[in-house]
Design a protein around this nucleic acid. Structure first.
Lengths: 112, 112
DNA sequence: GCCGATGCATAAAAATCCGAGGTATGGAAG
DNA sequence: CTTCCATACCTCGGATTTTTATGCATCGGC
């Protein structure tokens, strides 16, 4: 199995890791960024993202810390750990592999 | 939501429809074809494919018919219906949309 | 003072996948 | 002729995921 089931099921994991590799972010922010960058094609729900973040933290791929925003709201930032960075590389490579594979199948010419 | 949840979760549906748009195929054959075309990146299990085919037939997107192979084995062929062909177009477009969106996010340059 | 946006979180319900198992035939190997 | 592998179909149950819905709290604008 070149591509894990995780990879198959969603694009969530590689994207979370990629975003956090750019800079530390908080959950709400990630949802907005994804929405903006993909013009709404990917519209994450909170109920999807937060459980992922908690799991990733438990697995040691990300670390969290609280911070106070200018307005006074509490924000829980997440940052990649060393292991998380390594996993990010694997996941992104996995996505490209899957993407290529699917594209090949879908682009296959019709007979005659 | 530009992309259905179905689309997010897997690449199975667009691929099934695309394959059947090329020609009528039977389940076992589809598994082999996908495996070959993707060099094993996508390795479908029977437990995944057959339930999908049954569901698609129930929904009227595909039609099945039995045929005897030269060797004498029974094969259940599946073919796209008119509605299935329309859905195929939508699904393939959806995949491209998702693929592009994810690629944009994953390719985003790091800050300075 | 109230409402919408921000911001975190979880619980219940629905959906999905995979592993494992079951049936049956034909052909090759022994 | 018997055994085993590849072909070919199918389904069940557990494990995992996602969504829907909801709850709580704060801030800023009207």
């Amino acid at each position: 199995m070149a591509v894990s089931q995780e990879m198959m099921k969603g694009t969530v994991l590689p994207i979370i890791l990629k975003l956090l590799s750019e800079k530390a972010m908080y959950g709400y922010e990630m949802i907005q960024v994804v929405n903006e960058r993909t013009d709404g094609v990917l519209a994450w729900k909170e109920g999807t993202l937060y459980p992922w973040l908690h799991r990733l933290e438990q697995e040691g791929l990300v670390q969290s810390f609280w911070e106070e925003s200018a307005g006074g709201r509490r924000r829980k930032y997440y940052a990649l750990t060393h292991r998380g960075a390594a996993e990010m590389t694997r996941q992104v490579a996995g996505w490209h592999s899957l993407s290529r594979a699917v594209s090949v199948v879908l682009a296959h010419p019709l007979p005659t």
